[in-house]
Amino acid sequence: SFQYVPVQLQGGAPWGFTLKGGLEHCEPLTVSKIEDGGKAALSQKMRTGDELVNINGTPLYGSRQEALILIKGSFRILKLIVRRRN
């Protein structure tokens, strides 16, 4: 089963996490790295392996390109929903 975790990061880029996968690579869009001391790490809500399913209220369909555009369009606040295996 899965758990959906809301994450809100503040203060602008860099957000402190790296993505891998996506439709382009025929795999889920997941968090591959969280930078020590970065905003994602400080939130204590994101983990490597989390799947990104929503950015700023926009549902994602797995495209890494789409996710990067939405993330780049976030100035002060980035709201994410990640899906994690229980």
Rank of each mutant, 00 (worst) to 15 (best):
S1P: 08
F2N: 08
F2W: 09
F2M: 08
Q3Y: 13
Q3T: 13
Y4F: 08
Y4H: 07
Y4Q: 08
Y4S: 06
V5M: 07
V5L: 10
V5D: 02
P6H: 15
P6D: 15
V7Y: 01
V7C: 09
V7N: 04
V7R: 05
Q8C: 13
Q8K: 13
Q8H: 10
L9Y: 04
A13M: 08
A13S: 10
P14L: 03
P14T: 01
P14G: 00
W15C: 03
W15Y: 05
T18H: 13
T18N: 08
T18A: 12
L19V: 10
L19I: 09
L19H: 02
G21C: 02
G21H: 00
G21W: 01
G22C: 04
G22L: 04
G22Y: 04
G22R: 01
G22S: 04
G22A: 01
G22N: 03
G22Q: 00
L23E: 11
L23I: 15
L23A: 15
L23P: 05
E24N: 11
H25F: 13
C26N: 15
C26M: 10
C26K: 12
C26F: 12
E27D: 08
E27Q: 11
P28S: 09
P28C: 03
L29A: 00
L29S: 03
L29Y: 06
L29M: 02
T30P: 03
T30M: 11
T30C: 10
V31I: 14
S32K: 09
K33P: 02
K33F: 14
K33V: 11
I34F: 02
I34S: 02
I34W: 02
E35Y: 12
D36Q: 12
D36K: 10
G37T: 07
G37S: 08
G38R: 01
K39V: 08
K39E: 01
K39R: 09
K39Q: 06
K39I: 11
K39D: 00
K39G: 03
A40G: 01
A40E: 04
A41K: 08
A41E: 11
S43T: 10
S43R: 03
Q44V: 06
Q44E: 11
Q44G: 14
Q44L: 12
K45I: 11
K45C: 11
M46G: 03
M46F: 07
R47S: 09
R47W: 07
T48Q: 12
T48I: 12
T48G: 07
D50V: 01
D50E: 01
D50T: 03
E51Q: 09
E51Y: 00
L52T: 02
I55C: 06
I55Q: 03
N56Y: 08
G57C: 10
G57K: 03
T58S: 08
P59E: 13
P59N: 15
Y61Q: 15
Y61R: 15
Y61N: 15
G62E: 05
G62C: 01
S63P: 03
R64Q: 15
Q65P: 06
Q65I: 07
E66F: 07
E66A: 11
E66I: 08
A67Y: 02
A67I: 03
A67E: 03
L68N: 13
I69W: 10
I69N: 15
L70T: 05
L70Y: 09
I71S: 04
I71P: 03
I71Y: 04
I71R: 04
I71W: 00
I71M: 14
K72T: 11
G73C: 10
G73N: 15
G73D: 13
S74G: 08
F75V: 14
F75P: 15
F75G: 15
R76F: 08
R76N: 14
R76S: 14
R76H: 13
I77T: 15
I77E: 15
I77A: 13
L78N: 06
L78F: 02
K79Y: 07
K79F: 07
I81Q: 06
V82S: 03
R83Y: 00
R83E: 04
R83N: 01
R84E: 04
R84V: 01
N86H: 12
N86M: 14
